[in-house]
Design a protein around this nucleic acid. Sequence first.
DNA 1: TGTAATTTTATACGTTGTTCAAAAATGCAC
DNA 2: GTGCATTTTTGAACAACGTATAAAATTACA
Lengths: 206, 206
Amino acid sequence: MRIQQAPAKSRTERKKEENKKRIILTAMELFKRQGFDQTTMEQIAGQADVCKGTLYNYFPVKEAILEEHVKEKFQNEHEERIRKLKKMPDTPTRLVWVLQEIVKGILEQNEIFEKHFIYRVKKISSLKREEKNFDGFRLLVAEIIGMGQETGEIRREVPLNLLVGLIEHAFIQIVQKYYRDPESFDLDETVRVCTDLCINGMRSTR
Amino acid sequence: MRIQQAPAKSRTERKKEENKKRIILTAMELFKRQGFDQTTMEQIAGQADVCKGTLYNYFPVKEAILEEHVKEKFQNEHEERIRKLKKMPDTPTRLVWVLQEIVKGILEQNEIFEKHFIYRVKKISSLKREEKNFDGFRLLVAEIIGMGQETGEIRREVPLNLLVGLIEHAFIQIVQKYYRDPESFDLDETVRVCTDLCINGMRSTR
DNA sequence: TGTAATTTTATACGTTGTTCAAAAATGCAC
DNA sequence: GTGCATTTTTGAACAACGTATAAAATTACA
């Protein structure tokens, strides 16, 4: 494979992108209408008018369709979020805001998020090589931490991916708490406690 | 496990336990000999002399066999570990020791524990997870935290399962770091950093 | 236009995990 | 022990995932 220069996208490239877009669109529609598990790959293929093998050529597993969709959504909102975050005074404020923002968006479409999330975790767990670039949620968190490190709020000697992982974990805890007991779930309080734990640690503040 | 109450376990119970033991034993043998992916459930069923349906009745997914095996191993070593932990001076010492101990045990086995690890992470990430009693690793960590709370080292106002989850997450980070780049992996250093992050948080120690 | 390379299609396949009715084993009352 | 209800196992068929392969279609390029 030669490297294609940016300007001219070949017809193949364009067709590929069209296919990908159409597949994602129809798949997400089906997921929302009948649920993720209830939607089969053959159904998606049929609906998007490609052969099953072609579908698997684009997305090696069903969850990869979700991944692509979520990634796009995140990218669209990234710049705007960064803009808002930069106006905030400190790291706790930023973390609380971003966690609330994203958790709120998730509580509605729970199944889709759950499938996507488990897939991501599984991928990361089984990857034997380092993931260089952050994307989506992790990128956003990485930038918040970067801001905090610049002002001296956040430790610099700990590897960035550990810090990002910590916040990602807080995020999971929050969502899990919601699903365990939606009735008594207090978003503000939960986010506050989890953020505080990440920032100040388990040590007793004597 | 507490003292075994000798009184009658029914024949059905005994047969079930026998079956379970035999299945785990033969499955683990096959996993070690030909690998996890290369061993099919039908093969396990045949070798353990039960029907496929029965096998699935005991273990709803292949990985659950691994889980049971690991759980048993953990329970066997629990008392001894608690004994050692009680002799240690403080929480960081205890956490570092137990993380090193367990991670070391994992690194020796390779594929089998990677599969088990991914399965556990997946379960942990699942949003529907119910918080029953702590078991295995989580129980051990809960006891360490309890010790720390008694001496005032560890915060009491944060829910226990959040604290346990934090350490579990540290554990995951450590193992992941190993899987991503086994060559440059420094167990002592990694455990030290992760433990420190959990206990002291992300905040810069100014 | 002709040719080589890539992509899509059609199809068959192996594995996981489910379902269901029939058969077997078990528990329990008599 | 005998009879009966309940649970468990069995066997077989089944749906869906994901893979493999060869033929057909499409593309790039000379």
